[in-house]
């Protein structure tokens, strides 16, 4: 298990505790996400601050994690390190997910 999860102010926070999401763990990651996000509040924030490396398999596993949520729930991403952020931008996946620089930014009240 490379995830821990908790609920804070009606947001489910899932923290990745592994430093890599790569081909070797992609299937396990998707399964762990399915278990961690079964039920719970509509908004899920995935905290990626510990992750130093992601490849296209890991990226696919995060997309799959979003797709396996029910239609009324959403998955936002927080704390992307530079190498992880780069993969999201090069693949344009930054247009699919809301990215926050940190978990606290993701949990801050919406402006305006």
């Amino acid at each position: 298990m490379c995830l821990s999860s908790r609920i804070e102010d009606e947001v489910m926070i899932v923290t990745v505790t592994a430093d890599r999401i790569d081909a070797a763990v992609a299937i396990q990651f998707k399964e762990d996400m399915r278990n961690a996000t079964a039920g719970g509040p509509p908004r899920v924030v995935l905290d990626l601050a510990a992750v130093q490396f992601i490849d296209s398999s890991g990226l696919g596993a995060i997309v799959a994690s979003m797709k396996q949520l029910s239609a009324l729930r959403r998955l936002d991403l927080a704390g992307l390190t530079p190498a992880v952020d780069k993969v999201f931008r090069l693949t344009r996946m930054d247009t699919v997910f809301r990215l926050f620089p940190s978990l606290s930014a993701a949990l801050a009240p919406e402006q305006g």
Partner: peptide
């Protein structure tokens, strides 16, 4: 959302 691709990004990254 349910049609988003979960793969096909590898060669894009390699070439970029």
């Amino acid at each position: 959302r349910h049609q988003l691709p979960e793969g096909g990004f590898g060669w894009l990254l390699i070439r970029r």
